[in-house]
Design a protein around this nucleic acid. Sequence first.
DNA 1: CCACTGTACATAGCTTGGCTATCTATGTCC
DNA 2: GGACATAGATAGCCAAGCTATGTACAGTGG
Lengths: 176, 176
Amino acid sequence: MYSGGMPSDLPALLGDLITVNHRLTRVAAHAADSRESPAVWRTLSVLRQLGPIRLGEIAARSRISQPTATKLVAHLVERGWAARLADPLDARVTSTVITAAGNAALSAWRSELAEALLPMFDGLADAELATIRNAVDILRERLDGSEVPVERVPTAAVTTARVPASEPGRPAGARA
Amino acid sequence: MYSGGMPSDLPALLGDLITVNHRLTRVAAHAADSRESPAVWRTLSVLRQLGPIRLGEIAARSRISQPTATKLVAHLVERGWAARLADPLDARVTSTVITAAGNAALSAWRSELAEALLPMFDGLADAELATIRNAVDILRERLDGSEVPVERVPTAAVTTARVPASEPGRPAGARA
DNA sequence: CCACTGTACATAGCTTGGCTATCTATGTCC
DNA sequence: GGACATAGATAGCCAAGCTATGTACAGTGG
């Protein structure tokens, strides 16, 4: 639990990280405009960041299943926040792009969220802010860099071919 | 407080923080392959940390609604990971405690999670680890400290002087 | 003592994000 | 052309979250 002064205990740190993470998620859920869900914003972020992108890659990047990505994108399209493009080279593919409205909505959400969270982070010293910023950068880098980089997750079959020699203890099937 | 540092675009930082947070949540969901959900572990963490605790406080701490807390606790009790205690002073109240099994399950989850995440955080420099650890501590402090204005006198009267709590299964006071 | 208001939790019913399993359509390779 | 692989869609399920409401108890004023 309280890791206050335990140095170098990576497992404990990761546990704490995830726990704090979950708590932050709840706070954000309260703070943000609750008419839309976290998944919507997360997906919009992916779209904004990666431009026209295939469904499968959205799923891989977001660490969600392909059907879930389909559902989310459908919702975004309904909302007018995303649009789908047929791929001239492959008729199976429809890429998704964020629209101007989507961009605006995402920015608005970020502002709103920030404003709502401000009181909670008011009075942080610059050094503390820098620490958080650095941590965010480190985590983002790891999230981007670590596995599932360009490779897509197999649809349903069991595949061990994509492991880039970095996943020793992964049950391979997620929730089977 | 160290005034005059970098401009610190706080809104942007908060947006990034939450976005990274959501992505991490997905990663954790994949990594900790347990058949239990984040909410379960989050609730168990609260129970472990705060000992016998009322439903309402679980809800407040977790930033979830009271009915959701009821549901989660019911699930935990079913699982044998939590037990409920009648309050001898107020028959409306039933406090909840984590059981030994719950404690073990929580610890096991944390280990499992840590192991699964290790590859992702492999090769981090000590300084980077320290940064993350500090950020976690800062965030936790803010999460604890700015505990949603529950429009109530801060804890004090409620959280103190409960049942000895050494034996979770024992009601400690025959209720009429 | 009895109503009356407030509090702590339970129940009902809904929405949404997530999953697996499966299907269709298209691409690719022999 | 036929066999297999791949991209995405559809169906159906469960969990976590919510609001609204109900129920039992606590505390108070008459």
